Simulated scan of single mutants.
Amino acid sequence: MAAPVLTLHHVQKAYQERVILDITQLELEPGVYWLLGPNGAGKTTSMKVMAGLIPFQGEIKVDNSVSSRQSPVQYRRLVNYAEAEPLYPGFLTGSDLISLYIKTKGEGYRDMGSMMKFMGIESYVHQPVSSYSSGMLKKLSLLLAFTGKPRVILLDEPLITLDTQSVPLLYTLVEEFHQQYGVTFCITSHQAVTAGSIQLEVQGTTIVKR
């Protein structure tokens, strides 16, 4: 049995006394996971909590050593996140954001130039993001999630607004980063996952391991 890459202990998140997330103990071994559930089930809240982006009660650790509470900067270097509907300051260019992420996250597993070409954003990456369509923004946000050398990458509804040509490219990146670099993925989706997977029920949201 593999050691857990992400451990949640007594994690709780509430909005105005309404408990959205309540996890006593959850250990995610290395793998690719899907969070399945209807709107309002807490998928995005779960992702933002695991990314260390919003306050919560409890403790989350990477590799049972790096705490989101005690070492938040180091933790966020190890856990990357792409939100469902990305929003960036309009005056920045895609290149500005990529440079900022590389400066913050460090050098990545792959050359960023080849990644940009692979995702097809090199033609507009130097333009201000205010000129981007929703699909262009989505591809940029997904690319940013693959910067640095994370242990975990969280993708919140990655297929929303993504053009059909880019979907298999994203699947290829997920497979490559998991198989070659040992990155664990957690992906939210409204779509059903093939039968035969491991399923865990957490607050009405199903966590499925491929």
Rank of each mutant, 00 (worst) to 15 (best):
E29Y: 04
A84N: 15
M1R: 13
G42Q: 03
G40R: 06
T93I: 02
P30L: 01
P4V: 03
M115R: 12
G52M: 02
T93Y: 06
L26M: 09
V79C: 11
V73G: 00
G196Q: 05
H178E: 06
Q179D: 06
I102V: 15
T44W: 07
H126C: 02
V49T: 14
K61V: 10
L97C: 07
Q165W: 13
M115D: 13
A195I: 08
L142T: 10
L137A: 01
L53T: 07
G37F: 12
I23Y: 07
R110H: 11
L53H: 07
G135C: 09
Y33V: 04
L26K: 00
L200N: 09
E175V: 00
M116S: 10
S166V: 00
I153A: 06
Q57T: 14
E175D: 12
R77E: 09
T172A: 15
I207V: 15
V167Q: 15
T161A: 14
E83F: 10
F118I: 03
L162M: 03
P150F: 11
Q16D: 11
V152L: 04
P89R: 04
P4Y: 04
T205R: 10
S67V: 00
A145W: 12
H126S: 14
M112Y: 14
E85I: 14
A195H: 12
V5S: 02
V129Q: 01
P168A: 03
S65H: 11
Y101G: 08
E201L: 08
L78A: 02
R69W: 02
R18P: 00
Q165P: 02
T7G: 01
G113R: 14
R210F: 10
Y88H: 01
G42E: 05
N80W: 03
V62W: 04
D63Y: 06
W34E: 05
F56W: 06
G94I: 03
I102W: 04
P89N: 09
Q191K: 13
L142A: 13
P89L: 07
L142Q: 09
G42A: 02
H10K: 12
I54P: 15
N39W: 06
K139V: 14
